[in-house]
């Protein structure tokens, strides 16, 4: 199969799949006929068939689809109140149901929006995957409350129940759960369910999201051997070649010669100076050799000081790292991952 044919097959599968899925979810023949009537814009027929289907035995999704068809149809027929009623039934069955404003009529969409605000729901409960050091982060939790209500959010697990928040909310809600016990320790590892309980008068609604909390070790920091941008400098430097050794040999030998000649006693006469010639000659030869030799490296005081400061800085930083690592070894890395919901939320 060529890649072009594969692409065409994939595109066809993409278009056909939703229709096939919808056909599979709608098994009831009356509801299927209502769907076909809606597709053919036969709205009277849709109303009759959908209401008839609702009197029959339907699955949850089928019942939701029947009310959705009724809502769309009433919207198309300008019966907004009836459309709102139908959508209220729809969201009570499927609170997570969303309409695409680009694909439904504005009348139907506004009716759906009004219906949402007339029913107390907790929708779109999301717990984000996160990982943080215990005590230094929190688990983000967000949901939408469709009516002003007292909302209690808890994490319920085998290790206990932890109150996350209890406030009056309406609309989009963003909460954080530090996942800590009262004494500051992180909550024990295990499975928890984040339960959002909204209550308004006699109406109440609850939504939940299971999560798994796991413990891990906090990574320790590696010790430094160097600082970025700073390098050790050579602690010795070769001085430039100079005549200084020979000059010094001349100076010192000259001092001995002048001293000897100057101090010689006139009454004793002048000596042969063979001793001075031997030692002075040796000094001058040594001076000449040292002048011609490559100078020996000598300590570079500034570089030595710089390296000492750098070593001190690295040692100080490593002490801080060691101290931080001691603290990190006592900490716990918390990882929170949302789990698939075992069952949908519902009206109580």
């Amino acid at each position: 199969m060529t890649s072009l044919r594969r692409l065409v097959v994939a595109l066809l599968a993409g278009f056909v799949a939703p229709a096939t899925a919808l056909a599979q979810t709608v098994q009831n023949p009356t509801l299927r006929r209502a769907q076909q009537a809606y597709d053919n814009l036969e709205y009277r027929q849709v109303l009759t068939l959908a209401q008839a289907a609702l009197r029959e035995r339907l699955t949850g999704p089928e019942r939701a689809r029947a009310y959705e068809l009724l809502g769309f149809t009433y919207g198309a027929m300008d019966s907004i109140l009836k459309a709102v009623d139908a959508f209220k039934q729809l969201v009570l069955i499927d609170p997570e149901r969303q309409l695409d404003p680009n694909r439904v009529s504005p009348k139907a969409y506004s009716a759906f929006d009004v219906a949402l605000r007339q029913v107390l729901l907790v929708r779109q409960l999301r717990v984000d995957s996160t990982s943080f050091v215990g005590g230094q982060g929190a688990v983000p939790i967000r949901f939408t409350v469709t009516q002003p209500a007292r909302v209690v959010t808890r994490a319920v697990g085998s290790e206990g129940r932890f109150l996350i928040d209890s406030s009056a909310w309406n609309g989009q809600v963003n909460l954080t759960w530090p996942a800590r016990l009262a004494n500051g320790d992180p909550v024990p590892a295990g499975s928890y369910t984040v339960v959002v309980d909204a209550r308004l008068g006699q109406n109440a609604f609850a939504a939940s999201q299971p999560v798994r909390v796991s413990h891990g070790r906090v990574d320790t920091l590696a010790h430094l051997t160097s600082l970025p941008g700073y390098e050790y400098l050579p602690e010795t430097e070769v001085p430039p070649q100079s005549w200084r050794p020979l000059g010094l040999a001349f100076l010192y030998t000259g001092g001995a010669v002048v001293g000897t000649v100057g101090l010689e006693s006139s009454s004793l006469g002048s000596g042969s100076k063979r001793e001075l010639a031997v030692v002075g000659g040796a000094a001058l030869v040594t001076g000449l050799v040292m002048t011609l030799r490559k100078p020996a490296p000598r300590p570079a005081a500034a570089n030595i000081l710089y390296n000492r400061l750098l070593r001190d800085q690295i040692a100080r930083r490593n002490q801080e790292i060691a101290k931080e690592n001691v603290a990190r070894r006592q900490q716990v890395q918390l990882t929170v991952v949302p789990l698939p919901k075992p069952g949908a939320a519902g009206v109580r």
Binding site: P245, A283, T286, M290, A296
Partner: peptide
């Protein structure tokens, strides 16, 4: 020290 290991004295 006029060179490596060479010392002169007066």
């Amino acid at each position: 020290e006029i060179g490596p290991g060479a010392t002169i004295l007066f």
